[in-house]
Amino acid sequence: MLVGEREVVAEIRGLTVRRLRAWVRRGWIRPAVRDHEYRFDELDLARLRLLCELREELGVGEEAMPLILSLMDQVYGLRRELRRLAEAIGAEPVEVRERILARLHEAP
């Protein structure tokens, strides 16, 4: 389900159209575009709620925000790759898995 700017602002406490557009411009939120307008999905909404929470409740300032988002996006990107790697290893036969485990447990 995709919603437009107005619905997003009505839905999320503490969000204004102006702020929403500024965040899209800065690339913090990346909605789809349809019929000249931005369209937000559930992922965008969850991220917007998080941004508002950081700003309003946790007092994170505009200057600190890019640093936090960049670290967060890296963590999730890394977790995703790590998950893929673990899944790929998990699908290997037992001997291969054990060889990899042994290698991981070797003293550096």
């Binding site: 890296q74 999730y76 990107g77």
Partner: peptide, 23 residues
């Protein structure tokens, strides 16, 4: 109760916000 960002972040759509420069 809303779904949290972390519930989406590692699923297919979450990739939109990932930075691929970590490696």
């Amino acid at each position: 109760q809303y779904r949290h960002y972390r519930d989406f972040a590692e699923t297919g759509a979450g990739e939109r916000y990932h930075t691929g420069r970590g490696f």
